[in-house]
């Protein structure tokens, strides 16, 4: 049985939980913005796959993690253009288009990877990390929470920035109006289509960044289907956040830490069947749903196309 008090072991578990949480944080943050504008991105998983693949390719070929992450943002945003064109502009069903985007991303990234890297299977090596002065000296937390890749701190700050934009700026007001009362936004002279377009591109870019983080920091490589359903978990986290961006941090970290706890429970040899241990992250989400779902709030025009003059 493992020594639970081992500093190295606890550090690895907390660090691993955070690493697992970050792709969910970025993707759910983007989805939250998009949902507030009335666009449900079922294809979030696809944006993440596009982002993961291009981030891996650029990071591997340039040796720059930052260029790779930037490429992930671009790839995710380009992927979300499909949603913009077919759902926001042409008003086709958001769920159907979202599923199509996932299938396209899975097929395209697998095909491209197999054609280019399946033989060599390159890896990116150990990712860089930024240790925060003084805080890094704290036992266990110093080497886990405060010694992460710099984009982790950017992501956490971004959740608060997005929250502020949504609540305190005219752009945020437009986004929320596009999801709540698009006809009112239209009457005020602001384009609903343009607002939803930018919100969807934001979702694509942030999900792509999440995918890029997953490939560069989380896995250190790319494997077909690497996202393993993270996009769907991110959608749930975005919905549970009830339009409050910083709550995405809570949801993502809860899920990531649950994954780490599931590993820990196996290693310490608890007398519970592994099947149940493996369900822990999902049980955590279900518990949160039960506790907060009744109070959850989704924009009234979510997933509905906007047609001027149509009720």
């Amino acid at each position: 049985m493992s020594d639970l008090l081992s500093q190295e072991f606890l550090t690895a578990l907390i660090s691993g939980g955070l690493v697992a949480a970050m792709p969910l944080l970025f993707a759910s943050l983007g989805e939250l913005v998009s949902e507030q504008a009335g666009v449900l991105n079922v294809g979030l998983e696809g944006y993440m796959l596009f982002g993961a693949f291009l981030a891996f390719v650029i990071a591997y070929n340039t040796g720059s993690e930052w260029l790779g992450l930037a490429a992930g943002i671009v790839a995710g945003a380009v992927g979300s253009l499909l949603m913009v064109v077919f759902s926001v502009r042409m008003r086709l069903d958001q769920i159907v288009i979202g599923i199509a985007i996932i299938l396209l991303a899975e097929g395209a990234t697998s095909l491209l990877f197999d054609a280019s890297y399946a033989e060599s299977r390159p890896s990116l090596g150990t990712p860089s990390e930024l240790a925060i002065p003084l805080l890094k000296e704290i036992p266990i937390l110093g080497e886990s929470v405060f010694s992460q890749h710099p984009i982790v701190y950017v992501g956490i700050a971004l959740a608060f920035v997005v929250g502020w934009i949504l609540k305190r700026t005219s752009a945020g007001l437009s986004i929320r109006a596009a999801g709540e009362r698009p006809e009112a936004l239209d009457a005020a002279g602001v384009s609903v289509t343009a607002t939803r377009t930018w919100a969807t591109l934001c979702a694509g870019g942030l999900a792509g960044l999440g995918g890029g983080y997953l490939a560069i920091v989380g896995a250190g490589s790319f494997t077909p289907f690497i996202t393993q359903g993270a996009g769907f978990i991110a959608i749930v986290i975005a919905m549970l956040s009830r339009g409050v961006a910083p709550w995405t941090i809570v949801g993502a970290v809860l899920f990531g830490m649950s994954l780490s706890i599931a590993t820990a429970l196996q290693l310490i040899g608890v007398e519970i069947q592994t099947d149940y241990v493996q369900m822990l992250p999902f049980i955590a989400v279900i518990v949160v749903l039960v506790l907060f779902a009744r109070r959850s709030y989704l924009p009234s025009a979510l997933a509905l196309p906007y047609v001027r003059g149509e009720k």
């Binding site: 493992s2 081992s6 072991f9 550090t11 690895a12 690493v19 697992a20 790319f222 994954l259 780490s260």
Partner: peptide
């Protein structure tokens, strides 16, 4: 449950096993 393609999960769990 079916982490055959979960590269990030493979890395995370193996890191914990090594830390153990």
């Amino acid at each position: 449950q079916a982490g055959y393609a979960d590269t990030a999960g493979g890395k995370r769990v193996t890191e914990a096993v090594i830390a153990d």
